[in-house]
Design a protein around this nucleic acid. Structure first.
Lengths: 253, 253
DNA sequence: AGCCTATACTTGTATATACAAGTATGGTAC
DNA sequence: GTACCATACTTGTATATACAAGTATAGGCT
């Protein structure tokens, strides 16, 4: 067991980041890097106390929160273990479409339809909670899975929050990937509905006549400011949203 | 401030339920009962320490977890406040359709189409992870909002897990409400898709020709056993799924 | 009036300590 | 061999204490 701990970078007390959070990150990194694999037993709390020279309560808090986050499982009297599959695979997780396609074994390609600064209409400025004389960045792109269109992305971005957004090359990286790298959202809002596509959408997604779309709209906040408002449209025949997860305490109201 | 605490039922130390959880329930009840309203300031940790005669760390844990659950907000140096809207209003929350309609100011009515024990096909028995010679309970019902159909429910229930399901009167209570009262799911799986309704569905939901449906299927586990498998079909024009919530740390992968 | 400061109160974090309770294991008695 | 028990190790919870740091306010100074 001690070998697992040899190379722990020491945590820094008296740091801007609280200790329990440093420990969480340490362990999370071990897991996501594949260093510790699913099912593997973690060092016990006392091991960690000795290795990191902090109080057990601090270790306990870190591990407890990692449990809530679904990264590890703990069994009273036995130990802590790396979770088999991270749960909370939310319906509405912020998943990069490129990753999603590639994880499914497909090949992803983006086609940028337009990337510009526009004066949007009242509907959009209200949704983004900005004055209606503020120009907004707009990106429209189609995402292909193996040359078959899977998603139409229509995105507005608040230039005050993301001034460099418009200068990115979105044939090389996706907007989601770029934005995820830039900030961590404070709050999100999702809506999902079934609609019939207008003709342009139908053609862009190469859909048959009469086929419905699954449409997901999302607003994302940072510092009480709407950073981006995006509408993702999927062909109903070729896509579904899914999630499976363990329930935690406040799932039900 | 002390008046808020007068009628606190004492928490019982040395109880089956840990103290911090008793405190959570106490506060949650105050909030859900409307006793403490949104925006209202909660008693400070020290107030609660005095009122309940427990350590501040215990209070702190309770309040911290309530924050994670989205029921309250805490501001460093200021205090704790009842959250404006409970977050985690998940897209996929187990919400009783009757409650949802009534909270929106509508009137709910159920029409039970059938309620029977059936031998289901392979598709269903596989999804429910039972042998295909096991009879399953099946319920089909339409839920109306102010006399307009809003949801078609087609549900299978494992009789081994819920033997009394078939004897309920589902004109008086909904299946969701009944099942929620019977058990707390360990795990859930959801899928959402956009489809065109078959003719029967279209007629039951009184939809125009060509109008798409939003279809949510859910499987629910308890003790590694599928308890219920349900397909909820909504008219695309009359319904959308929505959620807004604060992001917690491990939202993104 | 306007500005600054001391103060009180709040939550956030960290520690040391203690006991409870669940799990596995090894050994002992039969 | 089997049943039982003691033991060691694990996580779960509760406490008292301490200090840090954010917020608001009252009061005094200019």
């Amino acid at each position: 067991m001690s070998a697992m701990l040899d190379s722990f970078d020491d945590i820094s007390k008296s740091a801007p980041e609280p200790i329990y959070r440093q420990i969480k990150q340490l362990i999370e990194q071990r897991i996501t890097s594949g260093d510790w694999v699913a099912g593997q037993k973690l060092p016990s709390e006392n091991d960690l106390v000795a290795a990191l020279d902090v109080s057990r309560m601090t270790i306990n808090r870190a591990l407890r929160e990692l449990t809530q986050a679904g990264l590890i499982n703990r069994v009273h009297g036995l130990g802590s273990f790396v979770a088999e599959r991270p749960r909370h695979a939310s319906l509405i997780e912020l998943q990069d479409i490129a990753l999603e396609i590639e994880q499914g074994g497909g090949r992803h390609r983006s086609r940028v339809l337009s990337q510009e600064s526009v004066y949007a209409g009242r509907t959009v400025t209200e949704l983004m909670q900005v004055a209606d004389d503020v120009p907004l960045y707009r990106l429209r792109a189609v995402h292909y899975q193996d040359e078959l269109p899977l998603q139409l992305e229509s995105r507005y971005v608040n230039p005050q929050a993301m001034p460099d957004f418009i200068h990115q090359d979105f044939t090389r990286t996706t907007a989601t990937a770029y934005l995820l790298g830039q900030f961590k959202p404070d709050e999100m809002e999702h809506r999902v509905r079934a609609t019939l596509p207008d003709q342009q959408t139908r053609e862009l997604l190469e859909m048959k006549a009469g086929e419905p779309c699954l449409q997901l709209t999302r607003r994302t906040w940072k510092h009480d400011q709407v950073v981006t408002y995006v509408t993702l449209t999927y062909p109903g025949e070729r896509y579904e949203l899914g999630a499976r997860y363990a329930t935690d305490e406040y799932q039900l109201r």
